[in-house]
């Protein structure tokens, strides 16, 4: 994977995306009896995006070459990035069951524990979560998910 051309992969994803939009746009009216239809703009836009994604893939192969190994960090830095993504996923899974404070504490502790001693990490995570809960729930009146205990 590390020696794969990252630009080509991103170009391919955009190519697939634009193709899907283009095919779906073909099923919409290009012109109706009232004038231009809902398909006109999307057909042109996704068509141009499709061509651009091919040009970008060509550019990534010939001139602007970026391998995954050049752009994705290794070791601890990669761990940091991965922990952000994992912490976010865990937060989304947990929050509706545990409420905001616990889910946020888990998210923050996952990240703090990599840099601070565990008890400091946990302490800062709990403190920050409680303060944010109060600010958003009380001051901004945003209905945050809560546990059976109301927090």
């Amino acid at each position: 994977m590390s020696k794969q051309n990252a630009g080509v992969w991103v170009g391919l994803i955009i190519l697939v995306f634009s193709s899907v939009i283009f095919i779906q746009a073909m099923n919409l009216d290009y012109f109706s009896k009232f004038g231009p239809g809902p398909g006109l703009f999307p057909i042109w836009l996704s068509g141009i995006l499709l061509v651009l994604s091919i040009l970008y893939i060509r550019l990534s192969i010939k001139k602007s070459i970026y391998y995954f190994s050049d752009i994705i960090p290794m070791g601890r830095s990669f761990g940091n990035i991965l922990s952000v993504v994992l912490a976010l996923i865990v937060f989304m899974v947990l929050v509706n069951f545990t409420g905001f404070i616990i889910a946020s504490t888990v998210l923050l502790f996952t990240l703090f524990s990599r840099e601070y001693k565990w008890y400091w990490g946990l302490g800062i995570a709990i403190f920050t979560s409680i303060i944010l809960f109060i600010i958003f729930k009380v001051f901004f009146e945003i209905p945050l998910p809560v546990s059976v205990f109301g927090w």
Binding site: V84, A87, L88, F91, S104, L107, L108, L111, F112, E115, Y116, I124, T128, S129, L132, F136, I142, L144
Partner: peptide, 14 residues
């Protein structure tokens, strides 16, 4: 930044 970024992350989530 080890303190700052996680806090900005949770504020972004909120």
């Amino acid at each position: 930044s080890k303190l700052l970024y996680p806090i900005i992350l949770i504020i972004s989530v909120l």
